[in-house]
Nucleic acid binder design. Structure first.
Length: 177
DNA sequence: TAGGCCATCTGGTCCT
DNA sequence: AGGACCAGATGGCCTA
């Protein structure tokens, strides 16, 4: 199932509304349908293996000569992969909740979340460094050193630029660009 | 209808 | 050896 709360009522519930895990997830997982012909049969390109891109890693012969235990292992592996992705999505959701953004009614996509988070962190860092360098100037402590270190490492993008970029980005998201 | 985003399956590779 | 991680492929849902 793919229920999305990106906008209200997005993603219907075709069938099978129960999660295989019972764990509450921000995005409800589809029921695991098991191996399904015609779906997910392609694999990534040939990473160090022979054959064309389309053929590389494609599923071998058929399930007819596949031992039952290997099918079972695959199903277990699928389940673990689902759980892993659910944890990843939980982390994305947690991140969304701490990033201030404008379109509260519209869920941030993953790429938007990462991009905003990066610039938010940069803007916060710039703010902290600016404050600490001002207050602690001439005093002992980590402030001035931290500021110097940051300046050395961020010479190509000055701290003030992050705030500007973050606010610009928030603005562009508001306008849907 | 096209394009964006997403969940899921899958096999290869890395790590413990 | 087995699990975690990764990325390609596919199909479904939604919006413009």
């Amino acid at each position: 199932m793919k229920t999305k709360s990106r906008t209200s009522g997005r993603r219907g519930t075709p069938q099978g509304a129960e999660s295989s895990t019972g764990e509450s997830m921000p995005e409800q997982p589809r029921p695991s349908p098991g191996p399904e012909p015609g779906r997910g049969l392609r694999s990534r390109s040939a990473r160090g293996s022979a054959g064309t891109r389309a053929e590389a890693g494609r599923r071998r012969p058929g399930p007819s000569n596949r031992r039952e235990s290997s099918v079972q292992r695959r199903l277990e592996s699928n389940e673990r992969e689902r759980q892993r992705m659910h944890k990843l999505n939980n982390a994305f959701q947690a991140l969304r909740e701490v990033i201030p953004h404008v379109r509260a009614d519209k869920k941030l996509s993953k790429i938007e979340t990462l991009t905003l988070a990066k610039n938010y962190i940069k803007s916060l860092t710039a703010t902290i460094l600016t404050m600490s360098s001002g207050r602690l100037a001439g005093l002992e402590g980590p402030g001035p050193k931290l500021y110097q270190h940051y300046q050395q490492g961020a010479s190509e993008s000055p701290p003030e630029g992050h705030l500007q970029r973050y606010s610009t980005q928030i603005h562009s998201f508001r306008e849907g660009t």
